[in-house]
């Protein structure tokens, strides 16, 4: 367990040290490549501006993820209950998934008058598919004999769903959730990039664009660090959630300590 934490941390510190050394020795100017220490100082100095931007991006990400969970699971359940609903709607879910978000973001921004709402829709569009497809897979991957057993004891569709299909789908759903967590952040950032040129949003992506125009490269790096940190935090939190829910019974979580 300790090796799993120590090894990447040592590696990271080593890389940062090399980076710092290269920048100093080669005297690379900060507007080309700022050293890690400069980035860290910028992070502290610009915190007053970056923290609210981080909050805006995080808020959209979490809202989009929540919406993705609700819509994804509801649709998956609906699909699993009716073959016809699934046959009719699933292809469109795929179309939504394969259309690049950058390409439809301007349209969504034009349609939804509210910037926050359009960002939310974009991030949600990117995030919901893994949850949908994984949950459908899970709902279908139920032991056939267990289904027969439920039938034998006269459990209807509803109770089979609650007591059998949903618990059986949980590991699959959680796998999808981990992917969607990262995608929601990417969706939020991409949408901000597209919408940010309009000048209304103030998330981290907009701060990166703005810093780019002003050639404040250290601030770009600082915002980038925050986005990565947010992504890592989301991933770790969702992994922890998954571990807590599955540790008693699912092979993926057994013998593994976080």
């Amino acid at each position: 367990m300790s090796a799993r934490i120590v090894a990447p941390v040592v590696m990271g510190l080593l890389m940062l040290a090399v980076w710092e050394a290269v920048v100093r020795v080669a005297e690379i100017p900060p507007y080309v490549l700022p050293s890690p220490l400069v980035v860290a100082r910028t992070l502290v100095d610009d915190w007053g501006m970056l923290a609210p931007a981080l909050w805006v991006t995080l808020k959209i990400t979490l809202e989009a993820l929540a919406a993705a969970v609700i819509v994804g699971v509801l649709l998956a359940v609906l699909f699993s209950l009716s073959r016809w609903v699934e046959l009719s709607f699933f292809p469109y879910a795929i179309i939504l998934q394969v259309t690049p978000i950058v390409a439809i973001a301007p349209l969504i921004i034009a349609w939804a008058n509210d910037v926050d709402l359009s960002l939310l829709i974009c991030a949600w569009l990117v995030a919901f598919f893994p949850i949908l497809s994984n949950t459908i897979l899970g709902l279908r991957s139920v032991d056939h004999n267990l289904l027969a057993l439920f039938e034998l004891y006269g459990a209807g569709r509803w109770r089979t769903l609650i007591h059998l299909r949903l618990p059986a789908a949980l590991p699959y759903f959680l796998g999808g959730l981990r992917i969607s967590g990262g995608l929601a952040l990417i969706g939020a950032v991409v949408a901000e990039f597209v919408a940010g040129t309009g000048g209304n949003a103030s998330g981290l992506a907009y701060r990166i664009l703005e810093a780019g125009y002003q050639l404040r490269i250290p601030r770009m790096f600082a915002a980038l660090v925050l986005i990565s940190a947010a992504g890592i935090a989301i991933y770790l939190l969702l992994s922890l959630l998954s571990h807590l829910l599955l540790r008693r019974w699912h092979e993926s979580a057994i013998g593994e300590d976080l």
Partner: peptide, 22 residues
């Protein structure tokens, strides 16, 4: 069944309870 066909997420007691619960 040929396989135990138990619900892996449920305890032994909860598995045996199932028919009564349904």
């Amino acid at each position: 069944f040929q396989e135990p066909t138990l619900m892996p997420w449920a305890t032994a007691l909860a598995n045996v309870e199932l028919p009564l619960k349904l």
